[in-house]
Simulated assay, not measured.
Amino acid sequence: MSRHVTFMTIDDAGHYSPEQRAEIIAAYPDHEREARARGIPVLGSGRIFPVAEETIACEPFKLPRWWPRIGALDFGWDHPSAAVELAWDTEADVVYVTKVHRASQQTPAMQALALKAWGEWLPFAWPRDGRRETLEGACVALAKQYAAHGLYMLTSHARFPDGSVSVEAGLMDMLDRMQSGRFKVFSTLVQWFEEFRLFHRKNGQVVKLRDDLMAATRYGVIMLREATVHPAEFKAARRPVGQSDPLGAFR
């Protein structure tokens, strides 16, 4: 007999009004709220991001045209390939997750086709395994296969400015942003929050299961320095000489 587990939050209980939901959540003890209202179980040795969803979720809005953006990919086949778009408010140093894509058993051609709809100018960060050659790609490195299908891939894999690729450092960078109010996610990105709720450690190690969008987000945050502004929007947003220029750092 097959089985399926469906996770639901109190927000899925349509017979409650927003006010009633807020009252119910407020009635729970602080340490039980995530489990009771969001269906988040106690996981292994702990959640990697012990942050309340409402502190990072925000309503979608039209992005200012001068905010630089970057895409980021996590490769997969049986476990999904995943991608995110990040927008960066450089003046406040706040990162926003604005788009996500996740799909299993899709070739680079199909993935590239979907992601180019975000803008062919958008640069994409990618992990070290993108240098791996695949038989399906006629022994061509995976990142080059995506580039061959028109996706704008960065020339090198995601890494810190000193060349390191520490997973823990990337996770701590994300957590620091979350806890300091410098990391936000559009509230409509259901798949992202599904992974966020279950992203955890076991025996101190990151559990590499249903973490595809989390990984893609980490690569994007690491490579924020490569984020760019849409060329047409860059030109339109420039200010006359003498006026404050929000794009001055991207000349």
Rank of each mutant, 00 (worst) to 15 (best):
A72P: 00
R102S: 08
E168P: 05
F186D: 07
M214N: 12
R128I: 10
V95C: 09
L189T: 05
H200K: 06
D78S: 15
A82L: 04
V190K: 15
E53Y: 02
R38T: 03
K184F: 03
L142H: 00
W118M: 09
E23T: 15
H15C: 13
V185L: 09
A158G: 04
D89W: 02
A112F: 03
V97H: 01
E54M: 09
P127R: 00
P68S: 06
V206T: 10
R238I: 06
S45H: 06
L247M: 04
D162S: 06
I24M: 04
E54G: 09
A237M: 11
T6Y: 12
A237K: 04
V100E: 07
G119Y: 05
A37N: 03
K202L: 14
K62S: 11
Q145K: 08
Y146C: 02
S180G: 11
E226Q: 15
Q105R: 15
D176Q: 15
A114L: 11
H149L: 05
F61A: 04
I24K: 01
A236W: 07
T90M: 14
L198N: 11
E233M: 10
R182G: 05
T9H: 03
P18E: 08
P50F: 05
D74W: 00
L171S: 14
M178E: 05
A35C: 15
D78Y: 12
R3A: 13
T6C: 13
A112C: 11
F7Y: 15
R47K: 14
M110K: 11
T55D: 06
V95Y: 01
D93A: 07
L43H: 11
F199R: 02
A148I: 03
A52P: 01
P50V: 06
A237T: 07
H230A: 13
P41R: 09
S180R: 10
K99F: 04
A158F: 01
F250A: 02
L86A: 02
H149S: 09
P60I: 05
E59Q: 13
A72R: 00
G181T: 08
M1W: 13
Q105C: 12
M153G: 01
S180P: 05
R225C: 11
M172C: 08
F49E: 03
H101V: 07
V167K: 14
A103F: 10
F196R: 04
W126Y: 09
D129W: 04
V165I: 09
L247Q: 02
L198C: 11
E91Q: 12
M172P: 03
H31C: 04
D173T: 14
L43W: 12
F49V: 06
